[in-house]
Design a protein around this nucleic acid. Sequence first.
RNA 1: CGGGGCGUGGCGCAGUCUGGUAGCGCGCCUGCUUUGGGAGCAGGAAGUCCCCGGUUCAAAUCCGGGCGCCCCGACCA
Length: 479
Amino acid sequence: MSDQKLPPRSKDFSEWYNELVIRSELADYAPVRGCMIVRPYGWALWENIQQSLDRRFKATGHVNAAFPLLIPRSFIDKERSHVEGFSPELAVVTHGGGEELEEPLVIRPTSETIIGYAYSKWIQSYRDLPVLINQWNSVMRWEMRTKLFLRTTEFFWQEGHTAHATLKEADIETRQMLDIYQDFAVNDAAVPVIPGLKSEQERFAGADQTFSIEAMMGDGKALQSGTSHNLGQNFAKAFDIRYLDQNGELQYCWTTSWGLSTRFIGAIIMVHGDDQGLILPPRLAPHQAVIVPIFKTDEERTKVMLAARKIRSELVSSDFRVVLDEREGVSPGFKFNDWEMRGVPLRIEIGPKDIAKETVVLARRDIPGREGKSFVPQAGLPDSVRQALNSIQGALYERALKFREDNTTAPENYAAFKGAVEKGFAYSFWCGSAQCEKSIKEETKATLRCIPLDQTGDKGACIYCGKPAEEKAYFAKAY
RNA sequence: CGGGGCGUGGCGCAGUCUGGUAGCGCGCCUGCUUUGGGAGCAGGAAGUCCCCGGUUCAAAUCCGGGCGCCCCGACCA
């Protein structure tokens, strides 16, 4: 903690982000380059994200399991584009027990290969399908440039891996999981996202199709916030995942994989945060409300603390995540600022004046200053808190959506396109050529984020080459 | 891996040019006064000056060589 202000978000977004992550105690730097220590406050947020997603996975028939951290090097080599995609970023274990290993082991950069190995053993008949397994773990990719949560060498995530009898089923699964990510992002994280298909360039190494949800950060840049891959039969062929169908014929399975990582915490920070610090969506916030007691004399203190504790237990019984700030020696004003920096969505102030009137002050994190404050009776507080939190949850989403809309344009021509991607998203016709995509990237630094699923069916001219185009895509600078 | 910046109590920095008692702010500890928007005063603890070597009576400071971190670019969830 420090009594200095954060660097203003508007002035230096990157610096604001770095300092905020440290100061809010979400995470800290580790002794190994690119790795991060997730501190209890950050982990609590991650746990809420986990529960939120896990509930949805279970509701759609998935089960959790754990696969090993170490993978034989040769496994990675079995799928051609997978090798090409991951080789440069592998961490390799060459020694164990004081001796050089016969075959080097890689620390998993993702688990398609080892899961392919297992599935080939487990699946024999169409009766064994589908297999719907998820695992919560961490993986390691040797990144050149890292940033806490957004891109770390080791990151935490979930990776779902499924196997199906038909392409159709795999396709349904891939899209279903994308929907689940969108539902989570919108309804729990209050982060508006664009679901869409990745271009060939941006596709996962080893996938036939990659879908993603793309979100706009507070500086107008895009963040890929969750991905779902249709792996076709690529891994089934590489690892011999086959089943005997109803006609007694041997068939390769169709597999999928999908993941969402601690990167999403970065999205929450960058979508909702302001100059004061974090603003956490009520559904995911470790503390949904903080009670700050205010008093001068010992007599006041006794009364206020009694009331504050009563309020706390009432709210806890109503299933709110609430914390009472009993710290001594720091002023209420300090506590206000401290909890605002840490993004607690609702503050409940209670002092002698409130005791006399049997009220409390509710202060909304999303509306700074006096305007965000209201006096409410202590009686029926759980209902007032519920209402306030719901309202904040909704307001955060609306604000983020408006920001995205205000910073998304459909440029008329390439000159306007160049300007558009400096500020936010450009939504333009694209002819489908990888060459146009590459040229755009070279000239503007913007990449094709996704081809949204809800195409209007209109036709137009490619923003780059002017040739006939049937699809519109989002382009933006990205994290 | 290229370009830029930086390594000095926990954090942020000054001191380096021009070698000579290691300093400031914040935080931390103790006490008193405070407490409705980042409290005040007094006292106190805390530093291999990134590492190794060299020059010198003397190095945070000069010289040589390493290492690490941050920012900007090429690769990526």
